[in-house]
Amino acid sequence: MAEFDFSQAISEARAKYEEIALALDVNRLQSQAAQLEQEAAEPGLWDDPEHAQKVTSKLSAVQSQLKHLASAASRIDDVETLVELGREEADQDTLDEAQSEVESITNDLRDMEIQTLMDGEYDERSAVVTIRSGAGGVDAADFAQMLLRMYLRWAERNGYKAKVMDTSYAEEAGIKSATFQVDAPYAYGRLSVEGGTHRLVRISPFDNQGRRQTSFAAVEVVPLVEATDHIEVPESEIRVDTYCASGPGGQGVNTTYSAVRITHIPTGIVVTMQDERSQIQNRAAAMAVLQSRLLVLRHEEEAKKKKELAGDIKASWGDQMRSYVLHPYQMVKDLRTGEETSQTQAVFDGDIDAFIQAGIRWRHEQRRESAENGED
């Protein structure tokens, strides 16, 4: 067995740390933290709870980045000292401990590097995710509910605040659609790579003959709009319908017309909201989601124009981005990145960070290629 090359591993770790520190701009982060600390200390901060939540959440994220950077630098110095000590005393146990620490540092730096790759216009924002069942009947509705649970568990595992805003239940089982919001810095940057068509292959629990069934669900991810986005939606361009909110199996959950459906007439975009108790709150929430979708639509139109000017770029998400196979073998595979695992239950329990990180790297590479093609 080849001897572990400490010199090369530590040198590579230090180089990677410096690359990350440069990309994140430590001085900028420190300045940002100081400014946010001032805002957080203002006496009237919590007069506007929504704004206060954003300030404290952003401050926590920036402080966490600075802490991780400082910790990584310290750990690299410490492990270098540990290697020297182990060599001087010819202590294999110490060297084994040092090797384990070097590998841990390398993995942590790889995770930190992901932060530097989320450089899109809206990547820093919170995310609004909509899941819709597709082809596959009741299996597709059940699959859509499995995906909803998967993402909510992922948010929980990472300590992100998630809130289901609207759910349309299917008659037999599962859901027709659901919309939820994840409030965390860079939630959109992470979850946006999950957008696309997901495919499930399994023995259908709803088929009394036990046949294999393929079903589909679509995942749409948009950034949460902010006051500075200036997405104006004239009243003349929308139709607002109200109805009673419903639960699983079509069961009514209240007797008031509090649920709201907003249709944007020019684009045909439809948004429904029934999570809040009052019609006014549901309308406000639905308008925010509509504005988010219109923001993405505008962004896509701008990107399309740039693409036409730059020429055709081969990188595209395609219709189907990930397969979840439960029969005749166990495999979840991302068709864009090649990332795969046989731990299907862990994935459905929210263990999808490896897929998200691979997707972020993939997207960053596509953006880089797109920029290069645009320059040629």
Rank of each mutant, 00 (worst) to 15 (best):
E3R: 13
D5P: 05
F6Q: 05
Q8M: 09
I10D: 01
S11V: 07
V26R: 14
R28Y: 14
R28Q: 14
Q35P: 08
Q38D: 04
E39N: 04
W46K: 09
D47C: 15
D48E: 13
D48H: 04
E50K: 15
H51R: 13
Q53P: 12
S57H: 09
K58T: 13
A61H: 05
K67G: 10
R75G: 07
R75A: 12
D77F: 11
L82P: 00
V83A: 02
E84T: 03
E88R: 07
E88F: 11
E103K: 10
I105T: 05
D111V: 13
M112C: 10
Q115H: 10
M118G: 06
R125M: 11
A127T: 00
A127M: 00
A135C: 06
A140E: 04
D142C: 09
F143D: 00
L152E: 02
W154Q: 01
N158E: 00
G159M: 02
G159A: 04
K161P: 00
A162C: 01
V164R: 05
T167E: 10
A170R: 06
E171L: 12
A173F: 02
K176M: 15
A184N: 05
A184K: 07
Y186V: 15
S192Q: 12
S192I: 09
E194S: 14
G195N: 15
G196C: 10
G196I: 11
R202A: 14
R202P: 09
R202E: 03
R202L: 11
G210A: 04
Q213T: 15
F216M: 07
A217Q: 00
V225A: 11
A227F: 03
D229P: 00
D229K: 07
V233G: 01
P234V: 15
I238L: 10
I238Q: 04
S246G: 13
G252I: 15
N254H: 14
A259H: 08
V260G: 08
R261W: 05
T263E: 02
G268T: 06
V270L: 01
M273P: 09
D275T: 06
R277C: 14
I280M: 15
Q281P: 06
N282W: 08
A284Y: 04
A284T: 06
A284M: 07
A288R: 08
V289C: 08
L290Q: 03
L294T: 03
V296D: 05
V296I: 14
E302N: 08
K307H: 07
D312E: 13
K314P: 08
W317F: 13
Q320G: 15
R322A: 09
L326Y: 06
L326Q: 02
Q330V: 05
V332Q: 05
V332M: 02
G338H: 02
G338I: 01
S342P: 05
T344C: 14
Q345V: 15
V347I: 01
G350D: 00
D353I: 06
A358S: 09
W362V: 08
R363F: 11
E365W: 10
E365T: 12
Q366M: 14
R367I: 12
S370C: 14
E372Q: 12
D376L: 15
